Amino acid sequence: MPHLQFEVNKKIIDGVKREFIKQIQNSFAEVMQTKTDHIAISIKEVEKYDLSIGRAIEGDEICLMNLDIREGRSIEQKREVALRFMSIVNNLFEINNRNQYITFTQHNGNDFHLIERYLASWQKGEDPLA
């Protein structure tokens, strides 16, 4: 059950957020070879100067992404997701690619809990909620 967290220093309208969530879910599911119904996404809007990244110009819009995922994905899969997410952030949130930063944190499957159960470790082509 990935938790994909996006922190931005600007306000985003609801319609754009809905499209963003749809594109993020579909991109993650496609690249990571899983389904969408267990993907958790949070979008946090903060004030202009609440975020910083060294390479950004002061006052620029920034997006920091923390992606908590299950172990087992390749560096190629993680890189593909990173590039897709950066493109989506750029297109929908209009944040320069240079002002985006992604951190992956990998967990054992049993670190992710739903009311029904915890998840197993990731396996290609799985249905994590089956």
Rank of each mutant, 00 (worst) to 15 (best):
K78F: 01
E58G: 11
V81S: 04
I12D: 05
V81M: 07
M86V: 06
R73A: 02
G125E: 01
Y49V: 07
S42F: 00
S121K: 14
L83W: 08
D14S: 15
E116K: 02
L92T: 01
E47Q: 10
R55C: 06
I102N: 09
D68L: 09
Q33E: 15
R117S: 13
L129W: 10
G125L: 05
F85V: 10
G15I: 08
V89L: 09
S87L: 15
A40I: 15
G54V: 00
A120L: 14
D37G: 12
D50T: 12
N66L: 14
S87K: 15
L4Q: 03
D127C: 05
N96Y: 04
I102W: 00
R84Y: 01
L83S: 11
V8S: 08
I75C: 14
N110Q: 11
G109E: 01
I115T: 13
G125F: 05
D60N: 09
H38W: 03
N26A: 11
A120N: 14
H3Y: 12
E19V: 06
F112N: 01
R18G: 02
D111M: 11
L119T: 00
L83H: 07
A130F: 04
S87H: 08
A82V: 06
K22T: 13
K17V: 13
K17W: 10
S74Q: 08
N108F: 10
V16W: 03
A56Y: 02
Q5N: 14
Y118I: 06
H3F: 13
L114G: 10
M86P: 09
D14I: 14
R18S: 11
I13Y: 13
I57G: 12
N66Y: 15
I57D: 12
R18A: 13
R84N: 04
Y101P: 04
N97C: 05
K124L: 07
I115L: 15
M65I: 11
W122I: 05
L129M: 15
I43E: 05
F20E: 05
R55W: 02
L4D: 05
L64I: 12
N110G: 04
C63I: 03
D111T: 03
E94G: 04
I21Q: 07
D14W: 08
R98N: 15
K11Q: 15
I13T: 11
D50P: 03
Q25F: 09
I21P: 04
G15E: 14
R79Y: 07
Q25P: 05
L92A: 01
E19N: 05
T34L: 01
E30Y: 04
M65N: 11
V31P: 03
Y101D: 09
Q25H: 10
R18T: 13
Q5H: 09
Q5T: 13
A82H: 05
I41D: 00
V89G: 03
E30T: 14
R98Y: 14
Y101R: 12
D127Q: 09
